[in-house]
């Protein structure tokens, strides 16, 4: 399965959101899409999902025009984790995940079985009967990822999957995402948390794509020697990889702030 964005441009009220974006995602690949706030990352995902109209360009799934696909056909190829998910009903985690199996047209019992399988894949089987409202942020995100998996689509589009999570949960989430790509999913993961890149294995199938003001800034393998420099340029900061005792970090350097002479006010 191959998702291709070919020269995609989108404007909203004459303001360009995306301009001439080229991007490819294949099964087995992990593509991390980074960029400052407002760079157009979320719009790019929504365009691939057919939720935003293109002004120019083409989006294809295995050569088929993705914008003309029926919802069910698209759902069999692409699954989406939105940045902010909200659920309007008081449901259990299993019910919420089961809803993602709409495209299978199956009985409630089978949908529930599918939901349990997906929850187990993200080590959340024990949360199945819990009410969504009673889950912690980390548990909720795990359930949300289970919902994405329950759809059984080969390509996954994840929008800020580690948002609002503590550092430990963030690490676990990115580990899970990398594992999904190794299991054969194609994963396009939007994040502005570049620190997480340090924890990913430098495989050829893992790429980092930079987006700035709606334009593609770079598209390089994670192991590329120029990545830190490119990221620094993208965010206007100094970023560098540092390694010690078999561990790696992507460090953001801050200018040392001088203490103020007088307290403010």
């Amino acid at each position: 399965m191959e998702l291709i964005l070919d020269g995609v441009s989108i404007t909203h009220h004459d303001i360009p959101i995306l301009t001439d974006v080229m991007l490819t995602l294949r099964t087995g690949e992990l593509v991390v899409l980074v960029g400052p706030n407002g760079a157009g990352k979320t719009t790019l995902l929504r365009a691939a999902l057919g939720l935003v109209r293109l002004d120019r360009g083409r989006i294809t799934l295995d050569g088929e025009d993705a914008t003309r696909l029926a919802p069910r056909a698209r759902a069999s190829r692409l699954a989406w984790l939105p940045q902010t998910g909200s659920v309007s009903e008081p449901m259990t985690a299993a019910d919420h995940v089961a809803a993602a199996r709409y495209r299978f047209g199956e009985s409630a019992r089978r949908a529930e079985a599918g939901a349990f399988r997906a929850l187990t894949r993200v080590d959340a089987g024990s949360l199945a009967e819990r009410a969504l409202g009673s889950l912690s942020g980390g548990e909720r995100q795990r359930v949300a990822i289970a919902a994405v998996l329950a759809q059984e689509a080969p390509l996954l589009l994840l929008d800020e999957p580690a948002n609002h999570l503590d550092p430990h949960q963030q690490r676990e989430t990115f580990r899970l995402i990398a594992a999904l790509a190794r299991m054969g999913h194609g994963v396009l993961c939007v994040t502005h948390d570049v620190g997480a890149l340090a924890g990913l294995a430098k495989e050829d199938s893992t790429r980092v794509v930079g987006l700035r003001s709606g334009r593609l800034a770079f598209d390089v393998p994670l192991g590329d020697a120029t990545l830190a420099a490119r990221l620094s340029d993208l965010f206007g900061l100094r970023l560098a990889f540092a390694e010690r005792d078999g561990e790696r970090a992507l460090v953001t350097w801050w200018p040392v702030a001088e203490p103020a002479e007088r307290p403010c006010g």
């Binding site: 929504r46 999902l49 057919g50 939720l51 029926a70 919802p71 069910r72 698209r74 759902a75 069999s76 692409l78 699954a79 989406w80 939105p82 998910g85 909200s86 659920v87 309007s88 009903e89 449901m91 019910d95 919420h96 089961a98 809803a99 993602a100 709409y102 495209r103 047209g105 919902a147 759809q151």
Partner: peptide, 21 residues
């Protein structure tokens, strides 16, 4: 009924899950 179930996650999510909203 199944579409109503999917709509609990919002219209956009339901659409990407295959619902003709």
């Amino acid at each position: 009924l199944r579409a109503l179930h999917a709509l609990t996650g919002g219209e956009d999510v339901a659409q990407t899950q295959g619902v003709d909203v």
